[in-house]
Design a protein around this nucleic acid. Structure first.
Lengths: 258, 258
DNA sequence: CCAAAAGTGTTAAACTTACACCCATGT
DNA sequence: ACATGGGTGTAAGTTTAACACTTTTGG
């Protein structure tokens, strides 16, 4: 829980702890059972959906700030997190539209025109990937609600966040071809069908099963385990795991996935 | 020319015009006659070489700020300019080492610990490419000198600029495979040898002439002109030019160059 | 005629692509 | 036995990579 005194401190003196004029926004993609979702948030002071974001502590590295943010919203840490672009259009957020009365009613503290929270801000965009079934959502003290939205049925977002999502999705899909992302979205052991379905969902298109799995195995990224899973009907599939060393290597070097 | 009054205004009240806590740095790569160089700058107040950089006006888009910066240093505009990463390590610049006495002697204006120029700053990295023989260097009022350095003989740079150069070079080389960069570095008409030499120099490695040119032509990026150049001895080479429409298209879609 | 630069041709190997086919298993 | 999902095989087409070869031209 957070007290009113802490909110006051954040609003009035936050610029001592956080770097003013700079924020970050995270496009957190969530995968589960052939669905690709995006985490959105509804701020107390803004009537509409946004990407989750936050500020960077003066003592903190940029990437750590992003990881902290993602953890605060989803409870998950250590997931694949990637800076994709920094946004600096002067009209990206319209601060002149802020309603000071509303602000006061919502936050319980007066905001003035020179407050650090409503001065011009550039924002560093990150994207992250996780299995959404393993997350525990937490709106935080600035928001009323946060929820997963299907990637094909997103509402219109506030500010420049529609553009951010477009860029994030584009970068993520390009990177999926060049890096073996997926470590954080599959359990330690998984079947070939599972990883195949993951890639199809993330890329939003069909991939030939045979060729896809052949390629992953040829790249040395997967190791066949001496275990099978016997779910429901039909033949029980082999379990595989990532070859950690090869995976790390491929993250650095890059690969070609068709 | 810039007056002392203007310098005073910049130092004391610059935060009204520029966004404080945010800067940008540009790795400007210059190519000419099989050499790849990088533009470095020596600030008045810093004893050592840095990437050229600057601040973003409150009325200006990020990319426009970068273009303005590059133009101010080199006199060239409209060149290939690409955001590659944003740097936000709290220790990237050590402001506590600032010598206020020295500052006063150099800038002719007193700086205090709360000045906007020496508070924590995150920096957006851009890279640009140009033909360095067409540039006219201009250090600007904050620097004493700026010069082209051979990419293989760079001095140790200040702050985190060594890392910036590493990342910029890496991104530029990756992008060279995926986008037909080079429009700004070759004259309107050029020979196959010239573009081949350009790519070899930028990538820092040998490329098979035959295969390289075959590929570019197969991609439809080059158009053979009805002209030859008869420089010096031996067989005179054909001139080519970029097919503008196809080039723009390829910049958007991306290509594969080996 | 020769050296050097420009430009073309050829081939083996590698990789993609598309699709056919066999296997194991629960009902 | 058969439908279903798991998994393997293969042949055609395309692309890459390496390098040999021909042409032109000034001295």
């Amino acid at each position: 829980m957070i007290t009113q005194a802490e909110i006051d401190e954040f609003v009035l003196n936050g610029a001592r702890i956080y770097i003013p004029h700079v924020s970050l926004d995270c496009a957190i993609f969530g995968y589960h059972e052939q669905q690709l979702k995006l985490l959105l948030i509804k701020h107390k002071a803004v009537d509409g959906w946004c990407l989750p974001g936050g500020y960077i502590k003066r003592t903190e590295k940029l990437a750590d700030a992003a990881a902290r943010n993602v953890k605060e919203r989803t409870g998950v840490d250590g997931l694949f997190l990637q800076q994709f672009k920094t946004f600096g259009d002067p009209n990206r957020v319209k601060f002149e539209e802020i309603d000071e009365q509303l602000w006061y009613r919502i936050m319980g503290v007066k905001i003035t025109k020179d407050n650090w929270l409503i001065d011009q801000t550039i924002s560093v965009g990150f994207y992250a990937i996780t299995d959404f079934s393993r997350t525990v959502l937490e709106p935080g003290f600035l928001a009323v609600e946060c929820a997963w939205f299907d990637i094909d049925a997103l509402p219109k977002l506030e500010f420049d966040h529609d553009e951010m999502v477009r860029e994030a999705l584009h970068t993520m899909r390009i990177q999926l071809y060049h890096y073996p992302i997926g470590y954080n979205m599959l359990p330690g052991k998984f079947t070939l069908s599972e990883i195949h379905a993951l890639y199809q969902t993330m890329l939003g298109k069909k991939l030939d099963v045979s060729n896809f799995t052949k390629k992953l195995i040829a790249l040395g990224l997967l190791k066949k385990l001496d275990e099978k899973r016997s779910i429901g009907a039909h033949r029980s599939p082999h379990l595989y795991s990532f070859v950690k060393e090869r995976y790390e290597e491929a993250l650095n070097e890059g690969i070609v996935l068709s």
